[in-house]
């Protein structure tokens, strides 16, 4: 089913479900991500609003929002860039050798901060899941997506605010991955 941007979708037994373009725009998502980057990654760490081609080997981190709008806030970038982000976030406390858990933890926390602030810009009340890291959840409805493409240190990164159909379970259990094609770590 394809709906016009900004439209709503009606399901049996439910009220109209708002689609994300009617609730938040790309500039707001970009501003939220940019603020998170400056505070978490570093004062000089800017996200440049230029699209780039993601490498074949990507890693995603996301949180789910369950409320009047239900979906996921997903960060996707190359695995090496996710590791670089982890080093930048940890700064002087970064271990010499990063393990997978370090990257999942730090990258997931960045998704948590971006997702929490996106949630606050959406109609509430909503619940936020714990972050998950792995293969990005599938886009269920192309009209229910707000996608922002940026470069960080010249490397491409995508922030996607994307609806979930059918609605995600409520409430979410900790670290549970509700996406059939996603993988929690």
């Amino acid at each position: 089913m394809t709906l016009a941007p900004g439209a709503t979708e009606r399901r049996a037994g439910a009220g109209p479900r708002p689609l994300i373009p009617a609730l938040i725009d790309a500039a707001t998502v970009e501003a939220i991500a940019g603020e998170a980057w400056i505070a978490l990654v570093g004062e000089d760490e800017l996200l440049v609003p230029v699209p780039g081609e993601l490498p074949a080997d990507t890693l995603s981190a996301w949180v789910d929002v369950v409320g009047p709008w239900t979906g996921s806030v997903v960060l996707t970038t190359g695995r090496q860039t996710a590791a670089d982000l982890t080093r930048a976030l940890l700064g002087r406390t970064a271990p010499e050798l990063l393990d997978h858990e370090d990257v999942a933890d730090a990258y997931g926390e960045i998704a948590n901060v971006v997702g929490g602030n996106v949630k606050a810009a959406l109609p509430g009340p909503s619940q936020l899941s714990l972050p998950a890291v792995g293969v990005a959840p599938a886009v269920r409805n192309p009209d229910d997506v707000c996608r922002v493409e940026v470069l960080w240190r010249g490397q491409p990164l995508v922030v996607s605010v994307q609806g979930a159909l059918p609605p995600l379970p409520h409430p979410l259990s900790p670290h549970e991955n509700p996406h059939p094609n996603g993988a929690s770590l």
Binding site: L40, L89, L90, G91, T93, D102, D105, E109, N112
Partner: peptide
């Protein structure tokens, strides 16, 4: 905090 990275940041 459940995030080890965030615990390090706040503790630091």
């Amino acid at each position: 905090d459940d995030s080890r990275a965030m615990r390090r940041i706040v503790s630091g």
